[in-house]
Nucleic acid binder design. Structure first.
Length: 273
DNA sequence: CGGACAACCTGGCGGC
DNA sequence: TGCCGCCAGGTTGTCC
């Protein structure tokens, strides 16, 4: 659920409370939450390092430290927040990882489904080697998208979810982008005409930027670091709107399965070639 | 390469 | 009210 706009919103919310802070203790519920390296090495290396910058790559939160990068991935139900060490939070019910700071606060990672992971590495390539281009960067051009689409024959919906094809797009924004680009989710990527690829390029960017403006979509689990919800879900054209009238033509929005994911589209606006 | 499917997990919700 | 079973979707890995 947390996709690029949700992760970007979390990154922005963590900068003020975390930058300049030094880690002083590590607690985890289960070793599994630490993906890289082993839990003991993770703790030993993290202690004493200071957060210098926080950015995003794909759906990862990237904290640049003195000698390493601390990466956090929320997967489905992860939440991050910084609070005084003695302060309770409603989300502590699913507390999985707690990183103490030198100012008496803690960075807490709550995650009901326990899918989220933390990584510590000096080389980002260890984790990002297979990640595709960032859709909001200047080097993601229509020409680049078109060239990459041409080589792939699977459904465009499945391809948009593939992080090695494009970074940061998940189920919600894939459906939203395909709707505004007026492309049926089952169309083969290589079959897209140049004009369709151009529409898709601008639609992906528009959908992601709108998501960021509304501080993410709180369909169910996502929360901003301050505990509040985003409002992106109030602006969806098709996601979770099956049976309701298309906001453009009035036809009922349909829901099908594509690549094992719930996929929402307008059968009239997104005709199959 | 691509599609299908299981696994990882648990809360929420529809159905009975 | 309560229990059952399904659904949600990010990612990896396996099989055909």
């Amino acid at each position: 659920m947390p996709e690029l706009p949700e992760v970007e919103t979390v990154v922005r919310g963590l900068r003020a409370p975390l930058i300049g802070r030094t880690f002083s203790a590590v607690w985890y519920e289960r070793e599994r939450v630490i993906q890289l390296p082993d839990a003991a090495s993770f703790s030993a290396r993290l202690l004493g390092q200071t957060v210098r910058a926080i950015t995003r790559r794909a759906k990862y939160i990237v904290c640049a430290l003195d000698h390493d990068y601390l990466l956090l991935h929320l997967r489905m139900t992860g939440r991050l927040y910084v609070v005084p060490a003695d302060q309770q939070s409603a989300d502590d019910r699913w507390l999985r990882l707690r990183l103490s700071l030198d100012n008496g606060h803690e960075l807490r990672f709550s995650d009901a489904r326990r899918f989220g992971r933390a990584y510590l590495t000096a080389d980002l390539n260890d984790v990002f080697a297979e990640i595709g281009p960032e859709p909001l960067e200047d080097d993601f051009t229509v020409e680049m998208l078109q060239a990459r689409l041409r080589k792939r024959h699977k459904s465009i919906k499945a391809l948009l979810l593939d992080q090695s094809f494009l970074a940061g797009v998940g189920n919600i924004y894939a459906d939203e982008a395909l709707f505004t680009a007026q492309i049926h989710p089952l169309r083969s990527a290589a079959s897209l005409m140049p004009a369709e690829a151009a529409r898709l390029h601008s639609s992906i960017r528009a959908a992601l930027n709108a998501g960021i403006v509304h501080e993410g979509a709180s369909v169910n689990w996502y929360r901003k670091p301050d505990g509040s919800s985003g409002s992106s879900q109030a602006h969806f054209y098709v996601y979770d709107r099956q049976g309701q009238p298309c906001l453009v033509c009035g036809s009922p929005i349909e829901k099908i399965r594509v690549a094992q994911r719930g996929t929402h589209f307008c059968p009239n606006c997104q005709m199959r070639a």
